[in-house]
Design a protein around this nucleic acid. Structure first.
Lengths: 211, 211
DNA sequence: AATAATATGTTGCATTTGCAACATTTATAA
DNA sequence: TTATAAATGTTGCAAATGCAACATATTATT
């Protein structure tokens, strides 16, 4: 993933953060960062560490919305209307910066490092957009089988191989596809029986023509 | 929606398009723009007119993925891996520009209009990202009822009113929510009977506490 | 105004899926 | 190693949903 400060020198980075009135925060594991995200138009950038965005519904059930790693961006511009349902959890000590989005849009600096920052930002958001599109593409499939196959196809195309290595366990995969875990296991069994796939731990082999 | 050329003068716009080696295309209704989108990293910007992105599955069923209006962006960076399933349809005579994405990322111009272009681009992509997130938020709801309520809530919060005006007909709403139309009608009937909503044409009134 | 086309409403029924409950396996910690 | 927790596999059953077929209403076209 692109670094938000790629091709920006350390000294320029300092100036940039000052211009944009960016606030840097060092977060300890289990901190709650919600209070930091005041305005509706703030974006956060993860410089290091690991955060999670989770939703806790009225039943108290947690759902992992997304994991935020180094260089990820987040905030109310990136996630919908702020409400109590969303929580940001610090999983590993992290450093983040918070910027008022309007500071970016209305910044009149013509310094090279500001332009570079914008280009980096564009690249990062584009990547995020693509990831969202992939997930949407999957979720617009109606059956469990089609969701699974769409997921496998995407992964397989991405790496240009008929071997798909799951980046998470089957429980989390079910969450990602928004389907019941046991129903998913059942469908995977059928796919195996019908000779579509082969499963060995987290490695799935596509036996059909996946191109 | 933000105009990609907002705060850029006509003459600067010309120079900008030259610098980025942008190609302008005037499209007639029913043109197929697929051949224009050669590279994997090109983005298109709709200057005027109306396009549709549709998927045609192996059964020949069309699904509307998105409508692209003035100032919308599209392209393989914005939509997943290019494959035969996607089609771009020109619904109304349109003017679009196509830019190689790398021309943007590696452009070294420090002109004010280039910086402004980047800022506009950031704003547009952010908006798109938010729209995607909203849809994802809806599609991660498991039942028809919850999808509907999530949709109504989002719309209602967006306009700060308990009245929701559907931007499309019920058929298309069902498509958007990825549910069967008749099943949706049934659920809406239940919601009416249980006193959650009131429906009058395309105006839906939320009778519960939607805050 | 008459006709055609499209959108909406309704219902029975088959299928899919979620849910719950439990067995078994694998990973983690004491 | 043993104990404990977490992940995975299995199954019956109820509930939700899609599908098909049709009726009615609304909108567009001639």
């Amino acid at each position: 993933m692109v670094n938000i400060f790629a091709n920006i020198s350390a000294s320029s980075k300092c100036k940039l953060l000052k211009i944009l009135e960016a606030n840097t925060y060092n977060l300890k594991k289990n901190d709650n960062i919600f209070p930091i995200l005041k305005g509706e138009k703030t974006i956060g950038i993860v410089l290091s560490g690991l955060l999670q965005i989770v939703r806790i519904d009225y039943n108290g059930n947690k759902t992992l919305i997304e994991e935020l790693e180094e260089n990820d961006i987040f905030g109310n511009m990136v996630y919908p209307i702020p409400n109590r349902e969303f929580n940001y959890i610090v999983k590993e000590d992290a450093t983040i910066i918070i910027i008022d989005f309007n500071e970016i849009l209305f910044c009149t600096s013509e310094k090279e490092y500001f332009t570079q920052f914008l280009k980096n930002l564009v690249a990062i958001i584009m990547q995020k957009l693509q990831a969202k599109n992939e997930r949407l593409e999957i979720l617009t499939k109606k059956t469990i089988r089609n969701k699974l196959l769409e997921y496998f196809n995407t992964m397989s195309k991405k790496h240009g191989s008929r071997f798909v290595y799951l980046p998470f366990n089957f429980s989390d995969l079910a969450d990602y596809l928004v389907i019941d875990r046991s129903a998913m296991t059942r469908e995977i069994k059928y796919l195996k029986e019908e000779g579509f796939i082969e499963v060995k731990g987290k490695r799935i082999t596509l036996l059909y023509d996946f191109k």
